[in-house]
Simulated assay, not measured.
Amino acid sequence: MEFGLYSIGDRTPDPVTGRAPGEGERLAAIGAIAVRAERAGFDVFAVGEHHHRPYAVSAPVALLGWLAARTERIVLSTAATLITTADPVRLAEDYATLQHLAGGRLDVMLGRGLHPGVYAWFGRDLDDGYELAAENYGLLRRLWDEEEVDWSGRFRTPLTGFTAVPRPRDGVPPFVWHGTTRSPETAELAARYGDGLFANHSFWPPAHTRRLVAHFRERYAAAGHGPAEAAPVGLGGQVFVRPRSQDAVREFRPYFDAAPVYGRGPSLEEYQLTTPLAVGSPQQVIDRVLGFREYAGDYRRQLFLIDHAGLPLSTVLEQIDLIGAEILPVLRRETRPAPPTAPAGRPPAADRCPREHADLSPPEAGKSWSSV
């Protein structure tokens, strides 16, 4: 299994000091986090994309290019970039360029977007979200897989004899993850192409994630990409760790209470009982993360969010070192080796998967953060 970190690049004020980092300061901090993550032995570092305050990362390809120059081994990824509002031609060329510059150590995670306003800002309609994702990704896939593309669709001008440049490195596009918190349509799109599903289950109870992952595995097998258990699944989750659990809870509580996506709802203790949030000692975090396999099966990638909600950079760097030294070795020992990074070859896309699916809605107590 691969273990990594991801940042959504928020500039939430520190609830202890009241200070919010500037935009340039936050971007520089993300660079320091990526470098420290590589040094601590993590496999992946990923950054999100947002186009509204209080976030600092609106251009992940530029940030990841800078990170590629500052790192040597760690795989870089988006978490996620918006397939609904970006031009597929631009995406194809930007990320193929970055793949070359990073020496091949690049994945791309795609998402439909967290903020309803972003659709209008880019001239799109929120009601078209799923259709935009399906059409744009279909074109992106062709631009990477085919030397010359003739294409027409609903949401952009046609292409005639178009070749995206540069071509993917060694003829192999970046591996694609489709990120979602609750969307069966996103799971079906990932399954159709034999890609990975990143189920960011940070805010959802295990039963919800179990249904979403099972749905993806079933559709993956039905599309002919291999057995359901081989379907590439990734999970998110936030952790905060200190040598003593009491210290972890005490230190993290003000950040939890003030966080835009946590605060003003269930308590820290309630969240830990009903979601994957893990705040405690190294052993408690290890036990929680290993428990994810009870409802997601053997999965391929685990990403941790550790720089959210105004946590100071010094604290985040301490967290990286502690996780790298005391948690990662145990998790690696206790998890089975991952299957190959991508299926052999890329089979032709199956017919569009039907949109009928089991009810994936969480219990009433669940708290929605996103419609991706």
Score class of each variant (00 low, 15 high):
residue 3 F to C: 10
residue 10 D to F: 04
residue 12 T to Q: 15
residue 13 P to R: 07
residue 18 G to V: 05
residue 31 G to K: 00
residue 34 A to G: 11
residue 44 V to F: 08
residue 45 F to S: 02
residue 46 A to L: 03
residue 49 E to S: 07
residue 56 A to Y: 05
residue 56 A to G: 11
residue 59 A to N: 14
residue 60 P to L: 02
residue 60 P to F: 01
residue 63 L to I: 05
residue 71 T to Y: 05
residue 72 E to P: 01
residue 74 I to Q: 03
residue 75 V to H: 09
residue 77 S to Q: 05
residue 90 R to L: 13
residue 91 L to P: 02
residue 93 E to V: 01
residue 94 D to N: 11
residue 94 D to A: 12
residue 97 T to K: 08
residue 102 A to N: 02
residue 104 G to H: 02
residue 117 G to I: 03
residue 126 L to V: 14
residue 131 E to I: 01
residue 134 A to V: 13
residue 141 R to D: 14
residue 148 E to Q: 15
residue 149 V to H: 11
residue 150 D to T: 15
residue 152 S to P: 06
residue 168 P to S: 03
residue 174 P to Q: 05
residue 183 S to T: 12
residue 183 S to F: 04
residue 185 E to A: 14
residue 190 A to H: 10
residue 193 Y to C: 08
residue 193 Y to G: 12
residue 197 L to N: 06
residue 197 L to K: 09
residue 199 A to C: 14
residue 202 S to V: 08
residue 208 H to N: 10
residue 212 L to N: 01
residue 217 R to L: 01
residue 221 A to D: 12
residue 222 A to K: 11
residue 229 E to T: 13
residue 237 G to C: 11
residue 239 V to F: 07
residue 241 V to K: 06
residue 244 R to C: 04
residue 252 F to G: 03
residue 257 D to R: 05
residue 258 A to I: 02
residue 259 A to L: 00
residue 270 E to R: 11
residue 271 Y to I: 00
residue 274 T to P: 00
residue 277 L to Y: 05
residue 278 A to P: 11
residue 283 Q to P: 08
residue 286 I to L: 08
residue 286 I to R: 07
residue 294 E to Y: 01
residue 295 Y to L: 06
residue 296 A to E: 06
residue 297 G to R: 10
residue 298 D to W: 09
residue 300 R to D: 14
residue 312 P to L: 09
residue 315 T to D: 15
residue 317 L to Q: 10
residue 318 E to W: 06
residue 329 P to L: 13
residue 331 L to V: 09
residue 331 L to P: 04
residue 332 R to V: 11
residue 336 R to M: 08
residue 338 A to N: 09
residue 342 A to P: 00
residue 345 G to H: 10
residue 346 R to D: 06
residue 349 A to V: 03
residue 351 D to T: 13
residue 359 D to F: 11
residue 370 S to C: 06
